[in-house]
Design a protein around this nucleic acid. Structure first.
Lengths: 215, 215
DNA sequence: TAGATTTTGAGAGCTACTCTCATTTCATGG
DNA sequence: CCATGAAATGAGAGTAGCTCTCAAAATCTA
């Protein structure tokens, strides 16, 4: 396994990678990031479709079997990161009387800024793949749906609705789906616009609908 | 190719299957429905995953190549139907001053009732697969996204917004995604609830948000 | 250091999907 | 009604993602 790239950003800010991990655990983390780094590098060189699991395994210096042990699908290598639980925790920590849309707005902004600062290239590459590769898009939507169900639980807790009720489900999925467009829109406009701005504009629409006249 | 099942419902109501089609075209339609019917039958017998393209081809009495010529993916065999353009046409024919949500509401209700009357079993099977099979779900979401973009065009036409603007995209995707939950919810509640009712409840949430107190 | 447990590699196997090319089937104009 | 062109089909080889199994290697524990 190649040495960990010393230039990878400090993911330490709020991540529980304490130093008291056994050798086994540390190796697993290394393997994981080796696979991911190899994948990103190869995709940059040759594109997503041209990059095979075999190539990824070879560059990461593991066997193909191992790649599949760490990531269930090729798309997951690109999409999975370790921030999701953090993001969710942040969401739950928002004040109980804050409107949902604003809670999500706050957390989204924070997550986006964090991603942009820590791994700007990867953030862009991901958005780009989202637009280009249908399979990646599909996986991301599944992810959105899962997030929606988690949000539904949080909403249910506070409102007294059943988390499995149609109403809550419709509410959360429409919310989250709206946010999901941001990343795609951003990539399609060639990363020109300010991501945080886009969040605000999205929230405006989600909260109040389409303004009748374009400003 | 086996004879067309004489029990298949009359799809004639508003479909342009006029009798002046050449033999070639008629055969293509036959093949298409043969593949679809074979697929549905096999899935009922053995489930989605256990059903292979080879089996489908065999039962439909065509070659596997032909199956792929008619449907790009296995999921498409299950999801594609010929109603989509009709639905869209209906949507465009709605009065120009009707609110979007109501237009969609009307069309959704009509489409759902139609599907339920004409092909109740298939309608259920589809919803069921949507819940059970991730790949089918993924394909359906891609479909939702496409629908959202079409709706975006219609919205843009009437409002003066750019159809590619973030605002319009967020608005339409959140709308359509909300409706997308209906089918899943219906299947998960074992087809107990009235589909048309579900549409109304969905529209209520989409139009006015979650009521603060559950009624 | 010995033994239990976990992780890995090697390899076989399945299936969705693609591509190519020869053959068959339909359409059409004389 | 038949000859010519066009379209649809079948056969087959090939690719790649993904699963499963089993034995070897690495790590942990005592």
């Amino acid at each position: 396994m190649p040495d960990n790239d010393p230039m990878t950003p400090a993911r330490s800010l709020s991540l529980p990678d304490g130093p008291q991990l056994g050798l086994r655990e540390r190796k697993k983390i290394k393997t994981r990031t080796a696979i991911r780094d190899a994948t990103y590098a190869l995709i940059k060189e040759q594109g997503y479709d041209a990059t095979t699991i075999e190539q990824i395994a070879e560059r990461a210096e593991v066997s193909p079997s191992t790649v599949f042990r760490y990531f269930p699908t090729k798309e997951d290598i690109v999409l999975t990161d370790e921030y999701d639980p953090i993001i969710l925790a942040e969401l739950r920590n928002r004040p109980a009387d804050e409107p949902w849309v604003e809670s999500v707005q706050y957390v989204m902004k924070k997550a986006i800024s964090f991603g942009l600062e820590q791994e700007p290239e990867i953030t862009r590459l991901r958005s780009h793949l989202l637009v280009q590769v249908p399979a990646v898009r599909a996986r991301m939507r599944e992810h959105i749906s899962v997030t929606s169900r988690m949000l539904a639980e949080a909403v249910a807790e506070r409102t007294g609705w059943d988390k499995d009720s149609l109403e809550v489900r419709v509410y959360t999925i429409s919310l989250i789906s709206g946010f999901g467009e941001i990343s795609q829109y951003w990539a399609e406009s060639d990363f020109q616009e300010d991501l945080v701005d886009l969040v605000d504009r999205t929230v405006a629409v989600l909260a109040h609908g389409l303004p009748t006249r374009k400003p």
